[in-house]
Write a protein that binds this DNA or RNA. Structure first.
Length: 430
RNA sequence: UCCUCGGUAGCUCAAUCGGCAGAGCGGGUGGCUGUUAACCACUAGGUUGGGGGUUCAAGUCCCUCCCGGGGAGCCA
């Protein structure tokens, strides 16, 4: 009798095996019980018969859902069974008889599920999403590996910040006073390009925004890339190549999982270069023709983005925003200094912004002025300003939100299901 | 921070004009040899989020606080 995984059942048809896992569901009849059994690799059906199992059958017949058990039996192909296979049990050992499991067979509300996230994470839908997440992150890393990037892990505790201080979580740091949880690794990546040329980071990012929407978490994972000598145009080309790669590879690897999430795959198949590009000014024209009274200089709102994404069937870049709406480090367009070389990438089907990127200001004096104009303290940016003193070069980069991208790929309504333990404004438990 | 919706059994929800607080799932007991959110019978289970008020009478109306969902702003 050989221990094996449910995933490998095709190689064990007709053989005696041992599987270890949990009872996802149970249906009992008089002398036969059907257990839906999960072992972390897949699901199958276990047939437990009174005449075969003897004394323990009385307990198996009433075994609570989510009890853990070790099952010995013969693997049989069975189209009616969940997973396509069943195990005719010759013996079952109960590892632990579960207490009444809070999450039942009926639907539950978000409050209850989020409070029980540690248990919800076992459900088939949630494990499916986690498997797609695993694939997505792996393809992200593969892309950068295959394209000559070096991974640079940027710090979580920081004293310099990329945007403005209002969105930072602060932490007491020994005798040094306040440090902040990182809201971007970009500034550190900019330091790394001078030694490594093409770099990326992938890690948690923290934003103390009091946002309560399906697109926001206070702790999320972001992948950021930075490339020396890339200008704005090359930056966009890199982004569309990257996004197409991760979408197509994840789709190819996890097609069955996405279908089980009831994702329509056709829109994803269209995600190939080139993506649409429109300028901020063109976006304003489009919005005004639709009746908006948006003024030049205002950032695009969520409704505005929705209007624009509905015009396109694949991701769309909105580039060259007014300088006043964007972060201090973005490079001004030489002959139009009121604009900066930047772009947001909006995902289709109403998913909205998944990337923010820009060419960075590489001139020391211009950058210093921009820091002052944004009411930031130049003293805090000493090391960052150094980068413009010692062999400064044109460079550009971007950051992509893993959860927003995964939410789009899976076709989910909310990013909270895309991360194992979501952190939101009113939730830091479990 | 603002707007909006909600809080009734362990869970999901119902309760008409203010008039006996209910169902399904889950739990318990029993039945059933192929189930598919299995099914059938019986059964237990309630400070209707907290506090205050109006009323003969409040889950329902009013005030207030707490908790959560969705959205705005901001962002990935």
């Amino acid at each position: 009798m050989q221990e094996c995984l449910i995933r490998d059942f095709p190689d064990f048809i007709g053989k005696e095996v041992t599987i270890k896992g949990w009872v996802s569901n149970r249906r009992s009849s008089g002398r036969v019980s059907f257990l839906v059994f999960r072992d972390g690799s897949g699901i199958c059906q276990v047939i437990a018969e009174r005449d075969t199992l003897g004394e323990i059958y009385a307990e198996i017949k009433k075994i609570p859902i989510e009890s853990s058990a070790i099952v010995h039996g013969t693997v049989v192909e069975e189209s009616r069974a969940p997973g396509g296979f069943e195990v005719q049990a010759s013996g079952i050992e109960i590892v632990q008889k579960s207490e009444e499991f809070p999450i039942g067979k009926k639907e539950h509300g978000p409050d209850f599920l989020l409070s029980n996230r540690h248990l919800w994470l076992r459900s088939q839908r949630q494990t499916t999403i986690m498997r797609v997440r695993d694939a997505l992150v792996r393809h992200v890393r593969n892309y950068f590996y295959e394209n000559g990037f070096t991974l640079i892990d940027t710090p979580i505790f920081t004293t310099t910040c990329g945007e403005d201080t209002s969105n930072l979580f602060s932490v007491e740091y020994f005798d040094l006073g306040k440090t902040y949880l990182s809201q971007t690794g970009q500034l550190y990546l900019e330091a790394a390009i001078s030694g490594l040329g093409k770099v990326y980071c992938l890690g948690p990012t923290f934003r103390a925004e009091r946002s309560k929407t399906r697109r926001h978490l206070t702790e999320f994972w972001m992948v950021e890339a930075e490339v020396a000598f890339n200008d704005h145009k090359k930056n966009l080309e890199l982004q569309e190549d990257f996004v197409s790669y991760i979408v197509q590879n994840t789709l190819a690897e996890k097609e069955a999982e996405l279908l089980s999430l009831e994702r329509d795959l056709e829109p994803l198949k269209k995600v190939v270069p080139p993506f649409h590009r429109i300028s901020y000014d063109e976006a304003l024209d489009i919005l005004r023709k639709q009746g908006s009274d948006i003024q030049w200089g205002a950032d695009l709102g969520a409704d505005d983005e929705t209007v624009i994404t509905q015009l396109f069937d694949k991701p769309v870049f909105i580039e060259n925003y007014p300088k006043q709406t964007k972060a201090f480090y973005m490079k001004q367009v030489p002959d139009k200094p009121e604009y900066v070389y930047c772009a947001d990438l909006l995902a289709p089907e109403g998913y909205g912004e998944i990337i923010g990127g820009s060419q960075r200001e590489d001139n020391l004096d211009v950058l210093l002025k921009s820091i002052r104009d944004n009411n930031l303290e130049p003293e805090r940016y000493g090391w960052y300003l150094d980068l413009r003193k010692y062999g400064s070069v044109p460079h550009a980069g971007f950051g992509l939100g893993i959860e927003r991208t995964l939410s789009w790929i899976c076709g989910l309504k909310h990013v909270r299901e895309t991360i194992p333990f979501p952190r939101m404004i009113y939730r830091a438990y479990p």
